[in-house]
Each structure stands twice: as C-alpha cells, then as structure tokens.
Amino acid sequence: MSSLFERIGGEAAVNTAVDIFYRKVLSDDRVNEFFDGVDMEQQINKQKGFLTMVFGGPNNYTGKDMREGHKHLVARGLNDSHVDAIIELLGATLTELGVAAEDIQAVADIANSVRDDVLNR
C-alpha cells in the first residue's frame, strides 16, 4: 500500500499544486487580505512546505512553528472561517489535479489536525 504522499505524486505534485493553490488563495476575497504585501517568492516556498505536510510528506513542523508562524495573522482576525476557506481551496486544487476523493479527505484531515495550532488556541 503506497503512502498518501506517493499516491498524490510526491514532490513533483507539490511543485505543480503550489501555483494553482496560491493563485486560488490570491483570487479569493475571503482570505487574500492576509497575503497583501507579502513577498510572493517566499510565500510560494512556505506554501510548498505546507503542501508537503498536508500531502503526508516528510516534514519537521511542530505545533510551535504553526503558532509562531500565524500569530500575527490571528492578531489581524484569522479565524475558523479562513481555515475552512483554505481547506476548501486545497480540495479544489487537488480535484483539478485529479486526486481521488478519499485522498483529498485525508489531506483535509491533516490540515484540520493543525487548526488549533494555527489559530493559537
């Protein structure tokens, strides 16, 4: 049985998915205000890290990293509705790439598992 990360397509899938995902995020008025004025190259790299993690790939993120990395956004009003939107856009990205529904659910579950850390609660 191959791992979720392998089924999705590994690092190559991350590199393909990141453009599609980030484009969706920047185009979505529910969440794009949090991305105003950030360096797009750096953001792409952060999102590759995020996608690798939620695709079940190798990563060393800790709950502390997640809290520290999003603290300033929580202060600006980041809440559950934004996390929901991101998970929805993640799902839409994977649907576009032809990933199976159960694997998309598995990705959403991983993303949900860090929700409390991201929202610092």
Partner: peptide, 10 residues
C-alpha cells in the same frame, strides 16, 4: 532550515 524535505528552501 525548516521542512527538511526539499520544499521550503530555507
């Protein structure tokens, strides 16, 4: 370093 998986590029 951060992700140690070839993704974050730090």
């Amino acid at each position: 370093n951060s992700c140690r998986a070839g993704a974050c590029q730090s």
